[in-house]
């Protein structure tokens, strides 16, 4: 017995050195699924830290409201676990962008510092403008604003972004 143990131990030790894993590409794969709002609603500092936490098994997969049920499903599929509903108190909101009220903005630059993706342009004492195309709707700029001049605006559908709806399932409707 001891001999078997020793031999196997030797082989395993050798293999451990030979087959060491350098980098964990799993984090990248998880990060690719996350919506990159960098909103921190998951309790981590951003999407990447959350991805690292998931990869290490320290965080659950259902903490990301912007990713929604779809995101949870994709994570579940990647990790081979059961999808579950979003956690308590985390509900997805409609996609929105932040808009600065030109009348009240005092140009304090606090929101510029808060924006995780540098989507707000402006200088001290100058009116700030949010670049809508780059805004992720994370709402991180709302609390720092001393004059509450930033509001969230739901993105409306137009002819280009309009989506075909799910065909009504006749059997179920009749039920």
């Amino acid at each position: 017995m001891a001999a078997i143990g020793l031999v196997l131990g030797g082989i395993l030790g050798w293999a451990a050195i030979k087959l060491r894993v350098q980098d964990d590409p799993l984090v990248e794969k998880i990060d690719a699924i996350l919506p990159q709002t960098q909103c921190g609603q998951c309790g981590f500092a951003g999407c990447k830290p959350y991805a690292e936490a998931i990869a290490k098994g320290e965080a659950d997969i259902n903490l990301c409201p912007p990713g929604g049920a779809e995101g949870v499903k994709n994570l579940a599929e990647l990790l081979g676990v059961d999808a579950k509903p979003l956690g308590e108190g985390v509900e997805p909101k409609p996609k929105s962008v932040a808009v600065i009220d030109e009348n009240t903005c005092i140009g304090c630059t606090l929101c510029i510092q808060a924006c995780p993706v540098d989507a707000i342009v402006g200088a001290a004492k100058q009116l700030h403008v949010i670049v809508a195309a780059q805004c992720t709707g994370c709402e991180l700029c709302l609390p720092p604003c001393p004059v509450d001049c930033i509001g969230m605006q739901v993105i409306k559908e137009d002819v280009v972004t309009w989506k075909w709806r799910y065909p009504i399932h006749m059997m179920k409707r009749a039920a």
């Binding site: 924006c115 989506k163 075909w164």
Partner: peptide, 26 residues
């Protein structure tokens, strides 16, 4: 229906990628 949903996801994916780059730069 599926196609427009997939397109929507691709749009989102593109903007997520953009956001990631910008965030990393920040």
């Amino acid at each position: 229906f599926s196609k427009s949903e997939i397109w929507e996801r691709e749009r989102e994916k593109r903007s997520a990628d953009q956001a990631r780059v910008r965030h990393e730069f920040k």
